[in-house]
């Protein structure tokens, strides 16, 4: 399925904004991303398997509430990072 990557993570995806990955859940999808782009998972999920506070994932434009969310091969996933601070 198609995964949209936020600009701060382009360094992991060789500057690609849109990549392909597989998984039957959001957690598996992020694992697959990490297999392809080593290190990207730890930027999205912390060591306790929690989404980092300012990272949100949207599946078919609906915000995912948990990493166990089931996914279909035709789904489109957006990974977004908040802009804040100074």
């Amino acid at each position: 399925m198609t995964v949209w990557i936020p600009q701060p993570l382009f360094s992991y995806t060789k500057r690609q904004q849109k990549v392909e990955a597989e998984g039957s859940t959001l957690a598996e999808l992020i694992e697959d991303l990490d297999r392809q782009y080593r290190g990207i998972r730890f930027r999205i999920v912390d060591e306790q398997d929690r989404l980092r506070p300012h990272v949100k994932c949207f599946v078919n434009r609906e915000q995912a509430k948990c990493l166990d969310l089931p996914l279909a091969a035709t789904d489109e996933v957006h990974i977004c990072q908040a802009l804040s601070g100074g």
């Binding site: 701060p8 290190g39 730890f42 930027r43």
Partner: peptide
């Protein structure tokens, strides 16, 4: 610390 994307 990579902005909101955790430490490294």
């Amino acid at each position: 610390r990579t902005g909101h994307l955790g430490p490294t």
